[in-house]
Design a protein around this nucleic acid. Structure first.
Lengths: 192, 192
DNA sequence: TGTATAAAAATGAACGTTCATTCTTTTTTA
DNA sequence: TAAAAAAGAATGAACGTTCATTTTTATACA
C-alpha cells in the first residue's frame, strides 16, 4: 500500500462520506455540512478539493466508475477466447457489485437520475470500451448475437445492478448458486 | 372519459409537474415553488392535497406504479398459457415504457434512490403479484426455470428499464426490431 | 331564477430554517 | 518565518411550510 499524504487522506474521506450519505439519504439530503462532519473536516475544507457540490458529485462519480471498470477488467486479457473473456469480466463485475456494494449503489443511483452532468456520464461510459471490443470480436467470430451493444448490456450486465440493489435492500440473499444461475442467464442471452 | 372536478384537475397537474421536474432535475432540484408554478397553482395549494413534499413524492410514486401495473396486466388473462401470458405482459410493459416514457423514467428514478419511503416501495411491489403468480405456475408446469422471482425479474423485465433510459438519453433509438430482439432475449432467459 | 351567505378552495406574502459558499482567523507545514 | 492548509463563524439565497386574506363554490331562501 502506497503512503498517503494528509491531503490524500482528507480527500478520500470526503469521497467516502459523499458516497455514504448519498446512498443512505439521496443527493437532496446530503448537505455539505454533513459530508464534512462525516469526513471529520470543516465544510470550508471541501472547497479546497472541489469547486462546489456539483463538482464534488461529478468527480466522485467519475472516480468510482473508473475504479469499477479497473476492477472489472483486472484479470481480463484481450487475447482470451470470447467466452472466457466474457466470463472473466462478468464475474469480476459481480464481485465488485457484491463486495464494493456502497460504490456500486452509488453508481446505480447516478446512472438513473439527473444527479450528475451529462458530460461526466459520457466520461464514465468510455471506460467500458474493452467489453464493447470483446463483443465486437464475438460478433465477427459468430459467437455473440449481432445485437446492439445497449441490448447486450441490458441483458448481460445490467441485471446485476438490479440484483445488487434488491440484495442491499434486504429483499433477498444472493448466494453462490444464484450467482452461477445469473451468469448462465447472462451468457445465454448473448451467445449464439 | 369521466368528468373531472376542478380539484381533480389541480391534483393531476401537481402530479404531472412533480414527475416532469423530478425527471429533468432530480428530487434535490425540484422545489415546491417550481412544482407549483408548472402546475399553475400557488405553493400553498400543494398542501391542500399533500401533507408535505415527502408525502407528495410517495403518493406520486404509488399512483404511477399502480397505473403502470394496471396497464401491464390490462390484456392479460390468468387462464392464458404461460408463454402467451408472459408475452402479453412483457409487450404491454415495453409499450408502457416507450409510450408513457415520463412516468417510466420517474419510476426508475424512485426504484434506484432513497427518494421515497421504504413503505411506499413495498406498496408498489404488491401490484406485481399477477406476474409472480404466472411464474409460479410456469415453474410448476416445467415451462419456466426454477429461479428466484428476483432473478427472473432481473433478466426478463428489468432490462427494459435500462433500454428505456438509454433511449430517453438519446444514446440510441429503439425500433420494432430491437424490441422483438429484446423480447426474445427476455423469454429465452426464463423459459426452460 | 336571482340573491344572500356560509363554507371550501386557493392565493401571495411571510416565516423560520437550512443550505452552499465565502471570509477571516488560526494552525500546520516547509 | 513565510506559505499553505484548515478551521469555524458568517452570509445571503433558497427552501419547505404556514398565515392571513381573497376568491370561488355550494346552499338556502325569496
Amino acid at each position: 500500500m502506497a503512503e498517503l499524504t494528509k491531503s490524500q487522506i482528507k480527500r478520500r474521506a470526503l469521497v467516502k462520506a459523499t458516497i455514504e450519505l448519498v446512498n443512505n439519504s439521496g443527493f437532496h439530503a446530503a448537505p455539505m455540512s454533513k459530508i464534512a462532519k462525516i469526513a471529520n473536516v470543516s465544510p470550508a475544507t471541501i472547497y479546497l478539493y472541489f469547486e462546489n457540490k456539483q463538482d464534488l458529485v461529478n468527480k466522485v462519480y467519475i472516480e468510482v466508475k473508473a475504479s469499477f471498470t479497473e476492477y472489472a477488467f483486472a484479470t481480463y486479457d484481450p487475447n482470451m477466447e470470447v467466452a472466457e473473456g466474457f466470463e472473466v469480466i462478468w464475474k469480476r463485475i459481480a464481485d465488485f457489485k457484491l463486495k464494493e456494494c456502497e460504490e456500486a449503489m452509488f453508481l446505480a443511483q447516478c446512472d438513473n437520475t439527473p444527479m450528475i452532468d451529462e458530460q461526466s456520464r459520457e466520461e464514465g461510459i468510455k471506460h467500458l470500451q474493452p467489453l464493447l471490443d470483446l463483443w465486437e470480436r464475438g460478433k465477427k467470430e459468430g459467437k455473440i448475437k449481432p445485437l446492439s451493444d445497449y441490448i447486450l448490456y441490458a441483458y448481460a450486465i445490467n441485471p446485476l445492478s438490479f440484483l445488487m440493489i434488491t440484495q442491499k435492500r434486504g429483499r433477498f440473499q444472493l448466494n453462490e448458486d444464484h450467482l452461477e444461475e445469473a451468469y448462465q442467464s447472462a451468457w445465454s442471452s448473448i451467445k449464439i
